[in-house]
Design a protein around this nucleic acid. Sequence first.
DNA 1: AATGAAAACAACCGCGGGAGG
DNA 2: TCCTCCCGCGGTTGTTTTCAT
Length: 371
Amino acid sequence: MGRAPCCDKANVKRGPWSPEEDAKLKAFIETHGTGGNWIALPQKIGLKRCGKSCRLRWLNYLRPNIKHGGFTEEEDNIICNLYISIGSRWSIIAAQLPGRTDNDIKNYWNTRLKKKLLGKRKQSNFQPRNTNGLMEENSYPNALSSSALERLQLHMQLQGLQNPFSNFYNNPALWPKLHPSQEKMVQTLQSFKESSNPLMQNTLLSTHAEQGSPKAEAYKPATAADVVHQDAVKINSSKVDLLENSLNGMSSMDTSVPFMGTENKNPLDSNLAPRGEGVEQSNMGIQEVSALQAELDDILNNRTTCYIPQEDQMAEFDCFREINGSKESLMWWSNDFDGKSASSNSWDSTATPVLQTDPGMFQDYELGYSQ
DNA sequence: AATGAAAACAACCGCGGGAGG
DNA sequence: TCCTCCCGCGGTTGTTTTCAT
């Protein structure tokens, strides 16, 4: 059983839109709106187009205040930063760039920006070396998806040695505000763990309380900062869960949830934990328990593991020789992140683009405008 | 000037999730 | 609570334009 088609494909026109079709669609929507039903809209105005096609045409080209082409350097920086931190979530990225659509940004990234940034990458490089300095087969970077590797490389290129999460972890001012119910939970849990690290509070919240709180569940993240924050919490909560469960000797632990699941899109995540392996409870020896205890302590004390490329790996990239930015350059997010931006979207020109609030925010590094 | 390759742009497709009955 | 419909998203494909030879 396949999915039912959204329209009768035999009777709809496909391909480029004519000026007449554009005019019809634009005129109708400007006077009547979409009517809340894109599927029915083409019949209303006598267009032989799929409703989805109409929607796409309107959102990407016909609605007011759309900008095409001519991306500025600042926009490049924003796109690059956000891609590295949250991946290909184009709608979220577009929400930070008024007048830009997710499709436009996606195309721009795929056709130009990515090449601009990665074009200088040496082929067949970034092979990790073993202790003898020899290339290893099937080693970690090869196991990463091209997207993950791309983001990792971009991140390293732009941020030097910094793990994107490390500054984020260490600077509470960068964290997005929590839902009030979450804040309350944090306060409760604070005394429980006596942790001085607010992120750990969030971790505990996520690990032990979030699923049981409909309000917290309903508080869906929508900003770039929210997404990054959520990723960070997810990483640590998974790990803390596993470690705590291990140390508690829970025999019923679900080891089917690896640290690096398919949802985990951040390449750096893979450095935070063993790849895809659960903990063998029954065979766990004292040494393993000690190691886990130490690892848990690291997390609780905010000593997050991060991928630090070796000198020789760094040297493999032309880009590193071009970096003149500061290692402290990852202060992407201001305190202005809050719930109000969560409702923004790419076609809402009235939405406050949170990343625009500080024009100097992206001065820490420059893209390679050498061409 | 012709032609093929590459780049850029535009549109389509299918899936997931939310809203509402 | 379940089911259906629709919207929105991200990946992919198709078309057009530009560039190099």
